[in-house]
């Protein structure tokens, strides 16, 4: 990150609040978050349940809009975009990996990976090429025609990672990617993510509640009650 100072950061949150409900029942899921993430970082967000880590990821991933505050994505204000503008942002710059894999059932792995490319308006042949490349990068090119039900949990999550990669995003957002997997599979998934970050320079923001998994990242953010309590390099990075 020797050029970090010379360019605007990829993600810059300042005084971000996300408030649900009103008056007595008001819940401050995010309460004045300041956070800057540079291109190429691998950030893990941890915290007890209800600490707002998932909400933070949703705001960073433009699935949700903050109630107040500023969000500069690559130098552009995106806090007040409309639904459809946020959809376009997700389509072109963001990739998602979820805890429950969220693949389309009864649809081949290849077609699942192609899905975001359809919305990008790519031609069929181009799409196929990109999708196979993405599947290859997670080591599943030989499973391209399998349905999710024919794949193990770890394999399904790797297909989901391939889907997130297929759109060539600037950031990959992972919400508890290993939450449904045993330790061995979890480590495999984390190694895939680590490799993507190290070799391809992909920026990754991951929410997890497993400290072992957070150790694969370079930077650890600890949240409590909608606020950032600690922001430090992981032991490995330090």
């Amino acid at each position: 990150m020797n050029d970090a100072g010379s360019r605007s950061p990829l993600i810059a949150l300042s005084q971000i609040c996300r408030i649900y409900g009103q008056g007595e029942t008001e819940v401050r899921a995010l309460d004045g978050i300041d956070l800057t993430i540079q291109e190429g970082e691998f950030v893990a967000i941890m915290g007890p349940s209800g600490s707002g880590k998932s909400t933070a990821l949703n705001v960073i991933g433009c699935l949700d809009s903050p109630t107040s505050g500023h969000y500069l994505f690559s130098g552009t204000e995106v806090a007040n975009l409309t639904r459809d503008q946020r959809a376009l942002l997700r389509r072109h710059y963001l990739g998602f990996v979820f805890q429950g894999y969220n693949l389309l059932s009864r649809t081949s792995a290849l077609h699942n990976v192609e899905l975001p490319l359809i919305y990008k308006g790519m031609s069929r042949t181009e799409r196929r090429k990109e999708a196979i490349a993405a599947l290859t990068s997670v080591g599943l090119e030989h499973r391209a025609n399998h349905d999710p039900s024919q794949l193990s949990g770890g394999q399904q999550q790797r297909v989901a990672i391939a889907r997130a990669l297929a759109g060539s995003p600037r950031v990959m957002l992972a919400d508890e990617p290993t939450g449904n997997l045993d330790t061995k599979r979890s480590v495999e998934i984390m190694e895939v993510l680590q490799k993507l970050n190290r070799d391809a320079g992909l920026t990754i923001v991951m929410v997890t509640h497993e400290a072992d998994m957070a150790e694969f990242a370079n930077r650890l953010i600890w949240m409590v009650d909608g606020k950032i309590e600690r922001d430090e390099p992981t032991r490995k990075a330090a």
Binding site: L63, D84, L88, R90, H92, L94, G167
Partner: peptide, 16 residues
């Protein structure tokens, strides 16, 4: 519903 959520998350617009 889940499928719709997936499509929206990966960048489908409401009109699509």
């Amino acid at each position: 519903t889940r499928e719709i959520g997936i499509r929206l998350a990966i960048g489908a617009q409401a009109s699509q």
